[in-house]
Design a protein around this nucleic acid. Structure first.
Lengths: 249, 249
DNA sequence: GCTAGACAATTGCATATGCAATTAGCAAGT
DNA sequence: ACTTGCTAATTGCATATGCAATTGTCTAGC
């Protein structure tokens, strides 16, 4: 990985210098200008380029590393990290991984797909404007042959144009998105609902059985990326997370 | 708030100095030796006491401030912060606050209480050893007169001895604990369950209706503090959280 | 008593400097 | 080819120093 456009690093003159540096690099990463694996220029180079002292550059990079955006190793240098797979309580989880971790075979099936303007129902369900171009997908994930979770998703074509050409033949939409987009904000909602008729039949449970509904929307730099509703058959599933409010204890 | 025992700050000689300082102070806070509001010695004092340079002390304090453990203001100095009320996705939430935020009257009722060794059922439900002394409480929270959430909780008497003398006449157990204990680790699990007979009648819903079950256990420095199961009538409730994996965008 | 202003304590930020630790890559020797 | 060891690039850590910004507190003057 060679010398990646150091000239792209630009300070905006507002606030402390170390924070300007931090934000400049963060934005390059979130914009996709520096995709994962890209070599971040070494401290000396940034120092010269920006006219700041090495300690100031260092401070910015250390903080970015703590935030998980970059990975640093002595001598090897600094590279842009892979996007985090999980965070705190709720994860942008990869359903295949999740299933395989339980030692089950994984498979999925796209039940329906429609690209273009959302139907009124879809627009309402995901709080979309009717004018926004999206791909609308319904996917059933299976674990060891059994229905695992029912996924309904919209992907914003303006934000992730590559979606239009993707068939999702081997990789389910969620995983594919992790590789083809970035997110900087997410919103989650969790609730318990009773399975409706159609959901029950797809998930092979009784109508009215409790299900865990996870709704998630993600943005990258205020642009919507995707919104998804995951319906997990109740009882069989739970979300677990462990964390502390402070640094590791 | 006067000069609080600076001699209590002790380094352990392992790892970087700035991190030793950070941990030393963090432990004093989490131990309760420096309760919220306590004045943390100024950088100069710590610098002399510890034989470190001011920048090194500074680095430790800045990091503690970012973690939310302390609050710093120029000239005024540094004080131990109040414990955080919420975090990321799921909060150590105050049920009264939550209810009032919705503009409803709040009330609660302790349905049962038993202190001492847990019964076999309780021990099993909360993964306790039979020998651990706990207070076991069942509380119903009401919102505008209507049942809001059913809470079943154990509090470890060894960790929070003040519990034994508390009647919970005006403050429900969760809120009382926030004022009388600290936590450094929490574990959450969320699942959807069908209301059982007893739960349904207490929550005034139909048996079998979907409910959101939140199970939470908290520790302070590896000592268990409390474990709680909150059963929310489905449909009426959802948890929402918004966050980014990186620093504020 | 009250106010304006000076003073000083405390944190925030940046720099310059030096050394330590790690390790990729190269060179030398077998 | 394979190993061994050296060198240098890069990050990690700590120090010393200086100035800026904020704001309690005190003092002088009214």
């Amino acid at each position: 990985m060679s010398d990646n456009g150091i000239e792209a690093v630009k300070l905006d003159g507002t606030g402390p210098v170390y924070d300007q540096i931090r934000r400049a690099i963060r934005d390059l990463v979130l914009n996709g200008a520096w995709p994962p694996g890209t070599a971040v220029p070494p401290e000396h180079a940034l120092m010269e380029r920006l006219g700041a002292s090495r300690m100031t550059v260092h401070r910015a990079l250390v903080q970015l590393a703590r935030e998980g955006l970059i990975t640093r190793r002595r001598r090897s240098g600094t590279i842009v990290a892979n996007p985090p797979a999980s965070h705190a309580m709720l994860d942008i989880l990869s359903i295949p991984d999740e299933v395989r971790q339980l030692g089950q075979d994984y498979s999925f099936e796209i039940l329906s797909r429609r690209d273009g303007r959302p139907s009124p129902e879809v627009a309402a369900g995901f709080e979309l404007k009717r004018s926004e171009q999206v791909a609308h997908l319904v996917t059933l994930h299976r674990s060891g042959g059994q229905p695992h979770v029912l996924e309904e998703r919209v992907i914003h074509l303006a934000t992730v144009p590559a979606t239009a050409a993707e068939r999702f033949g081997t990789t389910p939409p969620g995983d594919w998105l992790l590789q083809h987009s970035l997110w900087s904000q997410a919103e989650h909602a969790i609730s318990a609902v009773a399975a409706g008729e159609r959901e029950a039949s797809l998930l092979e449970i009784e109508q009215g059985e409790p299900c865990l509904l996870v709704e998630r929307r993600t943005w990258n730099q205020n642009q919507p990326v995707t919104a998804v509703r995951l319906l997990y058959p109740g009882g069989r599933h739970r979300f677990v997370g462990r964390f502390g409010p402070y640094g590791a204890v």
